[in-house]
């Protein structure tokens, strides 16, 4: 017997494993989290036997001043981190193209390095570099004579916020640069040559040729990083633990705390759903962007 599968059927079969996994590990989990968030769950996740409380957990979340504070920090962190990462990443990517071929190869290898470091290990690294007594950063500032004694990078509120952002920028400028390298490589060389022949100066070339050509890539990379930064957890957990006070607590670290420190699965789930809702907004923009640029076989 010979089987003839039509193309849509084959496509369906090919997509099936991915779909099943994504449903089980993402969509089902959201539904489950949603169910948790409507129950009063203290030190248990058996929601069937626990009281159903409608939206009481959400009310608690929105009433808490610390939710709004962590939301503010999360948004500030995301904004600062992505903008700085874009600036640094773009600089590094442009430099790679600008320098000679030989140096460019070296630069690419160097730029990719911070990207491979796992976030929690990144947090460890910066904990040591920002050490209050023998941290490299404080030491450099002191030897340059800028300050008398090492600043308390992770204890003073304003410093702590920006130390966290700096640590994130250090690691993630790298992936930003890699994305932009891809974008730059895709700009046809003859456009440059044409601009050069016209006698355009380099700044003008950058503004009028490179930037517009690169803009879609920049936008997608920004959205990609933005979504990632909104979910930041590991870095905070390892570097400041949310301190000083609750100044550097992100929404994700709040949710985690409610789950595994306080055992309040209901309230933690409400936090998680709120994070999800915020991200969906950004994700919608991201996906519509991607969709517009589709060039698949129709």
């Amino acid at each position: 017997m010979k089987i003839r599968l039509r193309e849509p059927t084959i496509a369906f079969l090919f997509l099936l494993p991915a779909f099943i996994g994504v449903i089980v590990f993402y969509y089902y989990q959201i539904v489950q989290t949603g169910i948790y968030s409507l129950h009063n769950l203290q030190h248990t996740a058996d929601w069937q036997t626990q009281p159903f409380v409608w939206f009481k957990n959400y009310a608690t979340v929105f009433r808490s001043t610390y939710f709004w504070q962590s939301l503010r920090f999360t948004v500030y962190f995301t904004f600062m981190a992505t903008v700085l990462e874009l600036a640094v990443g773009l600089g590094m990517a442009m430099a790679t193209f600008w320098v000679s071929r030989w140096l460019g190869g070296i630069l690419r290898a160097i730029i990719i390095m911070p990207w491979v470091i796992p976030p929690i290990i990144n947090a460890m690294i910066w904990r040591w570099l920002f050490h209050a007594d023998v941290g490299l950063f404080g030491y450099i500032l002191v030897s340059l004579g800028l300050v008398d004694k090492p600043p308390l990078f992770l204890t003073e509120p304003m410093l702590a916020v920006h130390s966290v952002i700096f640590a994130d920028v250090w690691k993630n400028s790298s992936i930003m640069a890699i994305f932009l390298l891809g974008g730059l490589a895709a700009i046809p060389a003859d456009i440059y040559d044409a601009a050069k022949v016209d006698g355009a100066r380099s700044w003008f070339r950058f503004r009028k040729v490179t930037l517009p050509m690169l803009l879609p890539t920049i936008l997608v990379a920004l959205l990609f990083r933005g979504i990632d930064a909104l979910r930041t957890f590991d870095l905070i957990y390892g570097l400041t633990g949310g301190g000083p006070g609750t100044v550097t607590e992100t929404l994700s670290s709040f949710a985690y705390k409610y789950y595994f420190t306080y055992g309040k699965f209901g309230l933690g789930s409400a936090y998680a759903i709120v994070v999800f809702a915020i991200i969906v907004g950004l994700a919608a923009v991201y996906l519509s962007r991607i969709r517009r640029n589709m060039r698949f076989k129709e």
Binding site: F25, Q32, Y36, A45, L230, F233, L251, A255, Y256, A283
Partner: peptide
Amino acid sequence: FLQLGAMIPIAVTIAP
């Protein structure tokens, strides 16, 4: 459908 899944923070899915 696949991409939207990836946007979900692990903090959301960790407990279930």
